[in-house]
Simulated assay, not measured.
Amino acid sequence: MTMFSTIRLRAAAVLASFALALSGCFLSPGKFTSELVFTGPDSFTFSYEGEIFFLGLSKLAQMDAAQAEFTPPECYNQETYESQECSAEELADARANWESGAADRAAEAKKKAEQMAAMMGGIDPSDPKAAEELVKRLKRQKGWERVVHKGDGVFDVSYRVTGTMGHDFMFPLIEGFPATNPFVQTFVRQGGQVRINAPGFATQNPEQAGMGAMMGIGSLAGLAAMRAELDGQGDAMPGIPVIDGTFTVRTTRGMRVLANNTDEGPEPNNTGEALTWRITTRTAQAPTALIALIP
């Protein structure tokens, strides 16, 4: 009987989850600092400094292609569960199964590439100049002051924008990309209130939530958490940056924090109050707050 180790099964779950990622989860923060500052009842400034991971430009998106050649399985004794050399019959069965699925794998890889290009505004992730094209696209949008590709789908960015609270706001919002993967959202309510959600600044623990639940918003951060765990056990995984940062919301005098899920609550300062969330791979609950902008 052939059995795979727990680590290998988890790595396989990452591959299985990639197909689900195409439905909307293809961006994730890495190391970052972000602030949302309300400068008045009708104005704000938002900033994000740090890493953004684009799944389509990473090695993770190419993992299926890496299976173009047959790789012998790991075999274990069914009684002792100790690793052992595969028998000729086991190897023959594994190769036969792999060969029978060649056409399906090729068709699926092509489908995934087309889907990812659609999710990336027509940028072909297999094009060697794809990262360069994305840098150009971001820099022509207002707010993206620095965009540098660090490699393997990880970009170092500096984003800063000032706006009014006459409408809702979302970050990131990229020309040609579907608006399906927000890090931060603000929703303006009647009566001078604003709801703040940061779904991209959280992850789920796959041990608690189950592998199938990982691919919701923020789930690439969940894959990064898995990667960190696997790295600790010596197993190689794609370079998804591990989420690590802070998100701060600042108000001015007269504004009130009506609700929030920080650990410490609002902290007073010289200009108003501040809410701060420390974001790590253990952050399971997305930051959220409700602010009264008008006294």
Rank of each mutant, 00 (worst) to 15 (best):
T6I: 14
R8I: 10
R10M: 13
A13C: 11
A21V: 07
S23H: 11
F32R: 06
T45K: 09
Y48R: 00
G50I: 05
E51I: 09
E51C: 09
L57W: 01
K59E: 15
K59L: 11
P72Y: 08
P72T: 03
E79D: 14
E85N: 12
E90S: 06
R95S: 03
W98F: 11
E99A: 08
S100K: 05
D104H: 15
K110I: 10
A117C: 04
A131C: 01
E132D: 13
V135L: 05
W144S: 08
E145S: 09
F155T: 03
G163K: 13
T164W: 02
F171N: 09
L173C: 09
G176Y: 04
G176F: 05
P178L: 02
P182D: 06
P182A: 00
F183M: 01
Q185R: 13
Q185T: 13
Q185C: 06
F187W: 12
T203R: 12
Q204F: 07
E207K: 05
M214P: 14
I217Q: 10
G222M: 13
L223N: 03
A228F: 00
D235V: 04
P241E: 00
I243H: 01
D244H: 03
D244V: 02
T248L: 03
R256T: 05
T262L: 07
T262N: 06
N269T: 02
T271D: 11
I291S: 11
I291D: 08
A292C: 04
I294V: 15
P295D: 10
P295M: 02
